[in-house]
Design a protein around this nucleic acid. Structure first.
Lengths: 185, 185
DNA sequence: GTCTATATTCCGATAGAC
DNA sequence: GTCTATCGGAATATAGAC
């Protein structure tokens, strides 16, 4: 992994651990045993790093979508849900939630990339549910888009709320989502 | 409203608008036409203000619970959901979500009060659902606690995600929650 | 309770040597 | 690409006058 990629990975983790406004270039420099100024060589501004992190997330999502394109709707949905399970294991939160709460304090360019990411997530989950409904493996009353929103908001906030209530609450929420989709009307 | 109360109200709004780490005492001082140092007279540290904001939220919640204690489960649930509708109208997010994403960058004392607030919200919604199930006005398969978590996470993240996707998504989510509870098995 | 003034620390960012 | 050195700005916080 190049230094640039390592910086992006560390920035990503820091945003999801402490929030965009709470981390500094020094946090990254210390981890990498380099100096503050060296980070600026790779990313002139903190906003530039934020954008790179979001573009990395977009690329990762597209790879996952591509890798699961021939799989069943159940497999796709489980792959989607396991994104959050991995984040939970790290004790962190989703980047969409983290940056959404700070939205009015970050550069507009970050907001633009964040919205793109959110749209792509919503679009994918909507398609998964749509396919599952057609193939009669998922059952739900709402539109696919609304149901996708319900599932995404459940998982996104499960990471946040389970930091405060009980760590097991994350699994309870995840399991309930899966079960509910399988209940025939 | 006393100056102290006004500062708390402004701090609350700023946390839910920009995040805890993005607002400064100067934001509040400017709004009140007083100086930075005057804020410190009322709240020695930013952490003190954060705690006061959270205690204010706890008090507000307890008042709401008390005011609705004799009402029906449906009325209680609608009262709970309308908390978020009001926040959405302001374009802000829920304080629980905002501070949960910044949890590892704030003072431990803030984390303690935030957890108390989250527990009280979860406890209330769980009781509302429990009562609704007993009285056969709400229908759901999960435990009351899990269903409460599902509903709370939906609303909390609906505020965050609808900043990014479509403002109308908030209403779609809210309406789906209400409808789903009324569906008989 | 609010003010002026100031101390202190931290952060983002740049210049220029190596 | 990384370093040293430094600038400029912002933010938290305190001292002491009014």
């Amino acid at each position: 992994m190049t230094t640039r990629e390592t910086i992006i990975a560390l920035g990503d983790q820091l945003i999801r651990d402490k929030g965009f406004n709470a981390f500094s270039f020094y946090d990254i420099a210390r981890s990498l045993n380099i100096k503050n100024a060296s980070i600026h060589y790779h990313f002139p501004s903190k906003t530039d790093l934020g954008i790179a992190v979001l573009k990395g997330q977009q690329d990762g999502l597209r790879s996952l979508i591509e890798a699961y394109s021939k799989k069943t709707p159940e497999e796709k949905l489980l792959a989607f849900l396991s994104i959050y399970t991995r984040i939970k294991a790290e004790g962190k939160v989703c980047i969409v939630g983290s940056l959404a709460t700070d939205l009015n304090s970050v550069d507009e360019k970050i907001a633009v990339e964040l919205k793109k990411l959110a749209q792509e997530i919503l679009s994918w989950v909507t398609q998964i549910l749509d396919e599952g409904k057609r193939k009669k493996v998922f059952y739900f009353r709402e539109s696919s888009r609304t149901r996708a929103l319900l599932i995404i908001t459940n998982m996104l906030a499960a990471l946040q709320v389970s930091r405060l209530t009980d760590e097991n609450d994350f699994s309870s929420i995840k399991n309930a989502i899966i079960k509910d989709l399988r209940v025939k009307p």
